[in-house]
Amino acid sequence: MNNTLAFIGGGNMASAILGGLLRAGRTPASLLVVEPYEPQRQKLAAELGLQALAAPDASLARASLVVWAVKPQLFAEAAAPCAGLLGHALQLSVMAGIRSDAIARATGSERVVRSMPNTPALIGQGIAGLFARAAVTAEDRQQVETVLAPTGRTVWVEQESDLDAVTALSGSGPAYFFYVVEALVQAAQDMGLSEAQGRELALATCAGAAALALQSGESPSVLRERVTSKGGTTYAALSAMQAAGVGPAIVQAVKAAQQRARELGEEFAPSLPAAPASTGAA
């Protein structure tokens, strides 16, 4: 069975996946990468030993799975020269906002999986929401999970619209975390600690709390209550947050991100012509 994987786009997310696949035993010869930006092609060659193509060619027809990893606004431009080469292949998109029907129309394949990863994927600690169109088989799903395994965890959703919520929660989530850490570091400095001390304390505390929550079978509210003694320091801090409306503000912020993800999905839904019949063998 053909085992070639093709990547359209060779940027940071693609590089994270490619690096993981190579570490897991994939050979460079089984990976095709199309990356028009010459400095990035040089980086792929230097760091991963991959010779990327500057533009698509007939070799793409060998691919059994195609990973779309270009910026969403460049999808139509990237897909056009691939038309007729990819219709037989499973399509995996890590592009934000591009709906699966646009990908199916552009590639000629109904076997489309959309993924919404996040930036910790770059160090193998990410989580990605996945949606599969009806034509995607159980074997296809397993292949997608294997390809994304080097980037972290995966969660399947039943409806494509659920990816807007995934985008808002985990896709944008690292930025929320960094925002909170910024505030903690500022508080540390206001209280007389150095920026370096505040950063180390804040990051270690957040990492430890996340690890504890992941290992515990109890809810975050129970874990919070266990370190909150009435009249104590944690109680004082949480009371101040509640008075400032921090909890509802976070919920409102995440819902705003969901709405924007929905809007971007409409903006990035290009009127692409249907791809011609594929020249590749199934």
Rank of each mutant, 00 (worst) to 15 (best):
W156M: 11
T27K: 15
M13L: 12
Q51E: 09
T279W: 00
A253M: 05
G173R: 02
E35H: 04
T27L: 11
A134R: 14
V144K: 08
L48F: 14
E182P: 07
G20W: 03
A102V: 15
P117C: 08
G9E: 02
R133S: 15
L48Q: 08
L169A: 13
A16N: 03
L21I: 05
T4P: 03
L85C: 03
R141M: 06
A175Q: 06
V113T: 13
D140M: 04
A211C: 07
G198T: 07
S170W: 13
T167G: 01
D190K: 09
C82G: 02
A54M: 05
G97Q: 05
Q259Y: 10
L272H: 05
R114G: 04
G217P: 05
H88F: 03
L21P: 00
L238A: 13
M95N: 07
T151D: 07
A45M: 14
S278F: 02
S100K: 04
V180I: 15
E35Y: 00
M116G: 07
Q40D: 07
A61N: 04
A55E: 10
L65W: 01
V94H: 03
S216E: 10
A165E: 05
L31A: 02
V155F: 12
Q159D: 10
T146A: 11
A240L: 12
P81L: 09
L169I: 15
A14G: 09
Q197C: 10
G84Q: 11
E182W: 12
Q51R: 11
L74N: 14
R41A: 05
E182G: 14
G208D: 07
F268N: 06
E77N: 13
V181P: 00
A24I: 07
A135T: 04
A236G: 14
A165G: 12
S278G: 14
L60P: 00
A138I: 10
G126N: 01
Q159N: 11
Q51Y: 01
V66Y: 02
S221N: 09
T205R: 06
I103C: 05
Q259T: 14
L201V: 14
V66S: 00
